[in-house]
Nucleic acid binder design. Sequence first.
RNA 1: GGAGGGCUCGCAUAGCGGCCGAGUGCACCGGUCUUGAAAACCGGCAAGGGAAACCUUCGAGGGUUCAAAUCCCUCGCCCUCCGCCA
Length: 424
Amino acid sequence: MIDLKTLRENPDAVKKSQTARGESADLVDRVIAADEARRAAIVEFERVRAEQNSLSKSVGAAKGDEKTALLEKAKTLAAQVKEADAKKSEAESSARSELMNLSNLIDPAAPVGGEADFKVLEEIGSPRDFDKEGFAPKDHVEIGKALGAIDVERGAKVSGSRFYYLTGVGALLEFALVNYAISSAAKNGFIPVIPPVLVKPAAMEGTGFLGQAAENVFHLEKDDFYLVGTSEVPLAAYHMDEIIDAKKLPLRYSGYSSCFRREAGTYGKDTRGIIRVHQFDKVEMFSFCKPEEAQKEHLRLLEWEKDFLKAMEVPFRVIDVASGDLGSSAARKFDCEAWIPTQNAYREVTSTSNCTEFQARRLNIRMKDEEGTKPIATLNGTLVAIPRMIVAILENHQQQDGTVKVPQALQAFLGTDIFRPVSA
RNA sequence: GGAGGGCUCGCAUAGCGGCCGAGUGCACCGGUCUUGAAAACCGGCAAGGGAAACCUUCGAGGGUUCAAAUCCCUCGCCCUCCGCCA
């Protein structure tokens, strides 16, 4: 959520940000109006409340007729307080709900525009020339099947489309990726975490996933639980309603969890294979830091993502995501896109967002230093999203003979340097 | 699922419907003393809003009352015992 002071003092900046996102700028005026109503209601409530408090005290001391008279007066005041209290609560909740609809202020450095207006920051590694090598690359579905690593048919049989089984070396590859990710994150000060994946509405809302993104989250209506789409949610909410000692910052967590996504509105997109699925596992980096250090921390997260992809020996590029394609919480976002040979395209495999103070305000997380309590910033970044990384590895490291080379960094975890087709 | 017990300022606890936003101990911070430290003693020490007066918060939400940490109801969480299951 946006700081109300910023909003009051500089509404135009917020409007500009909303417009750049392709969202409502009028909402800004509505929030300001609701906030004014809220503050007026608070003033009125506090006025009658103070009067009641002092009157109440004199009631206790008074006796006889005097007491009767005071009691009479106190009763009418009590009614007034009750009414003012109700008005205050109503004004507060409507102000909050308007405010919660505002997206984060975008970083002015982010490119303005829609999904296609991203800026390529760098390209690392170069795609293989399969023509030159003299064979046509197979896609990950075909390779995965040959290796006995991926079973999409049975995934569909048991759970429907966009579900899959990882079997044999596919399952082992997940463990290797996770182990490599968690151990390299630990070297960078990340505390490994296995979080809950069912969370309460407050956690989901606080991280900003119940706005425009709401249609993509699974909701268990009977129990009012949400299935998280990323461990960013339980990691951010880990410190909900807490005040963190500034000396402990930056506080970094690496969460390993299953992630669930409805993928609403993606009919026909990526229907083949495991690029876009309803359930997958992911290792996520999450960082709490001082607001003034958030930009640097963001770049660090990006570096660690790049390190991971380099270690997978996969060609990729880094893009600066445009304003219209940021999630509601992100002020700026960088995506790493791996080269997928059979699609002849770069596809998103990891992503890192600087959410500045937006999520922390919604989740009521602050820090405390010598000067007092202050806002804190949150950032997140994917270390590895298993299915897409498996796609990138299988497709980029396939050999003409049907085997797949294992990136060196994973060999120790897998105990082999090559995957071979299993006999049918 | 059944039966109890609890949830108060970092921790542990006290708390009669008004003198309780709240006592005590420990921890922590500052000072006196000391060559230094410990001990002792003195002082400070929850959060939020507000320029301030003041207001809000004793798990959450309702209710009773002029007045609720204190009484009543609902919910949540934790603990103990029993049953069941991994």
